Simulated scan of single mutants.
Amino acid sequence: MEKKHCTAIVLAAGQGKRMGASVQKQYIELDRHPLIYYTLQAFEDSEVIDDIILVVGPGQEDYVYKEIVRKYYFGKVKAIVPGGKERYDSVWMGLKVLNSGALGEEALAGYTFIHDGARMFVDEEILQRGYKTVEKYRACVAGMPSKDTVKLADEDGFAKETPNRNHVWTVQTPQVFETSLIVEAYSRLMREDSIEVTDDAMAVEQTMDIPVKLYEGSYRNIKITTPEDLEIAKVFLRHRDG
C-alpha cells in the first residue's frame, strides 16, 4: 500500500508561564539550540512526515522564520501561522491551512500529526507507530501506561475511586488522525458555544462518535513545562548524544 501524505501541525504558541523564564519555553536553549529545534528536527528527518505547519505566538512569525526555520534549514515547514488564545484555537489555525488546500489535495487526503512543540524527544519510532495505527483506526493518540497508582477525587478532595492501573494511560502527542476527520471534528467544535476539550482526541470523541486508539509513545516523550523538566531534558540529551 502506498504511503499517504502526512502533515505535522507543531504547536509552539504557548506562553509557558509555569517555566518562570524571561523567554517562552520553546525558545529556551538546551545545548546551544532552542528547545523547538529538537522537535522540528525530528519531523524534518522523519520518513513519515511530508510537511510541517508551525503554529507560533502572534507576532512571532518573522522571528521564528529567520531564527529557526531558515537558520536550521527546516525545508518541510510550509507555513508559519499565529496561534490563538487556547490550544484548540491554535490547532484550528493549523487545520485551516490544510483545509484551504494550500498544501495540495494529497495533504487533504492524508493524515495529520498534531504535536506539542515542547515535546522535544519525539522520535522516528513514535512517528512510525502513529502512522501504522492511524492507517488501521483513523484516529489515535500516543501515550504510556501510568507508572503510578491514580486516584479519582471528589469535589472536596477526598479519594473516591482507584482505577485499575492497567487501564490508565498518560496521554502524549503526536495525536494522529485522518485529515478529513480531524478537520470536520474541529469545524463542528468551533461552531459550538461551549468548548471544553483539552486534547484533539476529545474533539473527535465528542463530535464524531469515533473511538480513538491509544498507541505507545515513550516515557522519554515528556512535555517541557517546568524548570524541573528542563533538568530532566538535559540528562536525556546527554545520554542521547553520548
Rank of each mutant, 00 (worst) to 15 (best):
L152S: 03
Q15S: 14
V81F: 06
S46Y: 04
N99G: 13
Y137T: 07
E228L: 09
D200Y: 00
E184P: 04
F74D: 07
V23N: 11
D45V: 01
H115S: 10
E2R: 14
E178R: 12
K136Q: 14
E228W: 01
A107S: 15
R119L: 08
E205F: 13
A118T: 14
E228K: 12
I195D: 01
G143H: 09
E47D: 14
A142S: 14
R240E: 13
I126H: 02
R238E: 12
E2K: 13
E106W: 02
G110C: 09
S180K: 13
K136G: 00
Y186H: 11
V122P: 05
V69R: 01
S90A: 13
A12G: 15
L189E: 12
I36V: 12
D241Q: 11
G57T: 12
D209W: 07
A12H: 06
T149E: 15
K4R: 15
L181Q: 04
S146P: 05
F43Q: 05
D89W: 13
G20F: 11
I126Y: 02
T39D: 09
M1L: 06
Y131E: 04
L108G: 10
V69E: 07
T170H: 10
V212G: 04
Q24I: 10
P227Q: 11
Y65W: 15
A185N: 12
F236W: 01
V69S: 07
V171K: 15
I195E: 03
N221P: 08
C140P: 00
E216N: 02
T39W: 03
T133C: 14
H5F: 13
G157C: 05
D199Y: 12
K85D: 09
G59P: 12
Y111M: 08
K151W: 10
V171N: 08
D50G: 03
I53W: 02
I222V: 14
K85P: 00
V197C: 15
G117E: 03
Y111C: 07
K78N: 01
V176G: 01
V69D: 03
D156K: 13
K136W: 06
V168G: 05
L152W: 07
L103T: 02
V10C: 04
E29D: 10
S146I: 04
V176S: 00
I195G: 08
E2F: 08
A21I: 05
R119E: 13
Q15C: 02
L127S: 07
M190W: 09
G104I: 10
R129F: 02
H239A: 11
H5N: 12
V122M: 05
G143S: 05
T173L: 02
E192N: 09
D50C: 05
A142N: 05
F113N: 04
V10T: 07
Y215H: 10
I182E: 03
L40M: 12
I80Y: 02
L152F: 14
G20R: 10
E105G: 01
E67N: 15
E124R: 03
H5E: 08
V176H: 01
W169T: 07
G20N: 11
R165A: 03
D193M: 09
G83N: 03
P58K: 14
Y63N: 06
Y73D: 15
V183Q: 09
